[in-house]
Design a protein around this nucleic acid. Sequence first.
DNA 1: CTGGGGAAGGGGCCC
DNA 2: AGGGCCCCTTCCCCA
Length: 700
Amino acid sequence: MLDTMEAPGHSRQLLLQLNNQRTKGFLCDVIIVVQNALFRAHKNVLAASSAYLKSLVVHDNLLNLDHDMVSPAVFRLVLDFIYTGRLADGPEAAAAAAVAPGAEPSLGAVLAAASYLQIPDLVALCKKRLKRHGKYCHLRGGGGGGGGYAPYGRPGRGLRAATPVIQACYSSPAGPPPPPTTEPPSGPEAAVNTHCAELYASGPGPAAALCAPERRCSPLCGLDLSKKSPPGSAPPERPPGEREMPPRPDSPPSAGPAAYKEPPLALPPLPPLPFQKLEEAGPPPDPFRGGGGSPGPEPPGRPDGPSLLYRWMKHEPGLGSYGDELGRERGSPSERCEERGGDTAASPGGPPLGLAPPPRYPGSLDGPGAGGDGDDYKSSSEETGSSEDPSPPGGHLEGYPCPHLAYGEPESFGDNLYVCIPCGKGFPSSEQLNAHVEAHVEEEEALYGRAEAAEAVGKVSGAPGGLGELLRPYRCASCDKSYKDPATLRQHEKTHWLTRPYPCTICGKKFTQRGTMTRHMRSHLGLKPFACDACGMRFTRQYRLTEHMRIHSGEKPYECQVCGGKFAQQRNLISHMKMHAVGGAAGAAGALAGLGGLPGVPGPDGKGKLDFPEGVFAVARLTAEQLSLKQQDKAAAAELLAQTTHFLHDPKVALESLYPLAKFTAELGLSPDKAAEVLSQGAHLAAGPDGRTIDRFSPT
DNA sequence: CTGGGGAAGGGGCCC
DNA sequence: AGGGCCCCTTCCCCA
């Protein structure tokens, strides 16, 4: 039997590694949202440290802490304590204050947070320190009124006016917070980015300023995904008596996204509200903060959402600095990777550097909304496996210019630490990567040069393409699609890239367009700037709100041409038509085609009225002629055939599905028999001599 | 249990 | 960058 032996310092070393990984975001599987700050951490570590967090991480990958209970600055200290066992003091706190004046958290606030989060060790530590300062008794004895913790006003370093809830929190450490007695912090302390593992949503305070690149607060910082609420889309006023929505005494403070959801009556048990604070922190005014409880006007000089987002994009390693900025910022990936390269010490026990396959997306970080998109992930990985993938054998990160972008931890690239996003090739030096990127730029220029040349030729000679070519002169070399302007073409061409240039920093999913990525990020963060005036429901997109408003107006502009059913959403009409298609392909085809005949209702291709191939009309004419129909029936027959677009592709199906056409043919004035005759003859004509369907007819 | 409808979330892509 | 629209998908409710 082996004697039990203990490696000295093992636990400390382990904690060191965990903290190291946290600061790099490596294997972080949970995001904690505190007001407008986001912290990344490990569920296991949180669960092992805090009973409260343990209860939350089981269910969510995104936790929202009540910032009345924990300010971002305080939570940073708490998180540091969890991962180090030390409570920052002295220089660190002073540094925090220097960076964000007023952000220096008070010991009382830390104690309150520790109590709130149920971290006994930290509670004990705070108490001990407070006693040492002779202040603990004050805290305990404080009154309930606002500013009741005046004893901590500004007693000294590390102690400043704390959050209004210290006392209440302290008195009920395990419970959820009572309603705040004063304004929640909205000042600079609301956004203190002092750690690498944080990123920020928008909000008052100098979050963006704190994220200056020189602070090297990457990988995550300065994220603003808020969005201006459109005029007239302001969140609705709540009914009297509901203006304040204090945390429910029986629920964790993160509960309650439905807090702004009307009506309160039929509400199911309130699900957690992971993002409410983020929404509040965003530009749109939120009446749910209460009339008198609004955060107040934004501090002057605060960067607006887009600019903040822009800055984040610009400074974020690997994020958004590619694509259009391919040439301009191509040095960035190198620098990032240099930084990352230095991180390799973070995993000394790990495998030696070597080409490793790209990491799978951390499933636990899929976050809300990722569920239905598994195929996207699949396709993404399929890209990697594509035969056209220029990646070297063994593969390397596709679209991971600098792996700490998403995960913070160095990946294994072998010597090729410098990775080109578009093609995924790795290079051993930034210079080589730059040279390679240069080639991409030249390719682009050559491409657009060709497009312009082609345009010029087309204009002069009236070459193939005619009007279309003139209207959309910028043609994609990969798929022959053409566009009006080079920017759109450039945008489109990214869809052909093997690697997508815009990865999500939370889940790693990659996108071809920055806008899509930021929209995706909003879904992670639950930012829903578009509110329905009628019911208060909020949406991530204006279009969704427009769609939603039809529920209230009763407008159902989309009508089924088969059964007359009306729909408020076009997508539901389309799915409805598929149901018809199950029962009769021709009927569905006719009905779908019929959409094209409805003003304002786009056809199944979604591009407006259908453009029937001239061949269809040719068949219709021939059919009508051969059947010797009456003149008006000829027109009806032609219309019938024209509407039945599937006819040309599968006449057999069309013939077998005549019945669903009955309604339509009746409207045309054709008897079912006559309609069947028309279709039958049309099918005969539409089929080639060998029985195959003729897809294209030349106009006669 | 199943199918259909209503409503909504999310991604792609063009303008 | 943002808006808009299309498509796919999911969830929920109800018959």
